[in-house]
Design a protein around this nucleic acid. Structure first.
Lengths: 182, 182
DNA sequence: CAAAATATGTCAATATGGCTGACATAAATA
DNA sequence: TATTTATGTCAGCCATATTGACATATTTTG
């Protein structure tokens, strides 16, 4: 019940004395480890249901999401983000193109490129999936009160590899600007 | 569950104009959606490296983690948590038993049960993996300052399905007590 | 006690989404 | 022209998930 329960479920507190300055590796932080597992499981669970009815999986979701957010991106860029091989991407991408969710256009300057765009149908699906996740996030923020969004953003950002953090933030910012133009 | 019922399942329409105050379902909350994706990717990435050297995958990690945290759990309980079929679990579990990471003992009261325990070798691996994740979490908390742990816990808890939330919290709390006894 | 339900295991077939390696094509570039 | 780049594709392998059917031991129930 109350949010307090979670707190008392807490643990991982260091053996007396503590304050355990950050950076120390003492005892595993079990609560966050497990909560992250369950939270992520539910977070991707909503879209998964919708996707499975279309014969799609999580891989399709990732492709659709990033193409929708970054219209005109190169195949190579998508491969970098998803961190998979072109063969793996190829199979999934082909399905989405064949079924009219994603479209490929020859690059204007460099005609070797096959720039990726979502179709209206693809955008509708992308927004439907993001909407399901947004409902969950908004419900959470609603329970947590003001400042929750900022706190979540800071926590999640800090959890990303320091090396790639800047890259990720730029990606998100760039996509936001693209969305506003669109 | 929830007021704001999935608000028309989310999305799409965001009739011109507005700033969408939090709590409303208008526009997708892209930053959290994407940060969660990248944060989780890195979070599971650390263990993945270690596991792959042992010929194990993420499935093995999940089994090892929960058995370590809940010594003596039934196979059925593990199936519930992981939400997979017994056939899927069977293969992974067999490997871990064969290689001496997990042990099965006949239930005392109910001799049909094969209660699950980690071996010392299994516990060492579980702690090694949790340690990697803890380093990341502690680094994040260190960057964020005091209150970060509590804030993260509250956020992640709120992201879990309302139905299963209590169950998850009980699971975590129970495992903590078990750990302290051990 | 016999019958039914339960906990677990296993065989077989199938799907998804990763992977590697090799090779092909078109276009840009040195 | 020769090379590199961007992309695609074929073929096969692996890990992890699925469903369905069936087996075994044990507990519970009528």
């Amino acid at each position: 019940m109350s949010a307090k329960t979670a707190a008392s479920a807490g643990i991982a507190e260091r053996p007396a004395g503590g304050t355990a300055p950050a950076g120390e590796t003492g005892e595993p932080i079990w609560d966050i480890i497990e909560l992250l597992f369950f939270a992520y499981r539910d977070f991707v669970g909503d879209p998964d249901e919708v996707l499975s009815k279309l014969g799609f999986g999580r891989a399709h979701h990732r492709v659709l999401h990033f193409v929708n957010r970054n219209p005109g991106m190169k195949v190579a860029d998508l491969l970098d983000i998803l961190n998979i091989t072109k063969q793996s991407l190829g199979r999934v991408l082909k399905q989405m193109v064949d079924q009219g969710f994603v479209q490929q256009k020859e690059g204007a300057q460099d005609r070797r490129q096959r720039l990726l765009y979502v179709t209206p149908k693809g955008e509708a699906l992308a927004l439907k999936l993001a909407g399901l996740q947004t409902v969950r996030i908004n419900r959470a923020f609603g329970e947590l009160g003001p400042g929750a969004h900022e706190a979540a953003r800071r926590f999640l950002t800090a959890m990303i590899d320091t090396d790639s953090r800047e890259h990720v933030l730029r990606l998100i910012a760039r996509a936001d600007r693209a969305a506003k133009r669109g």
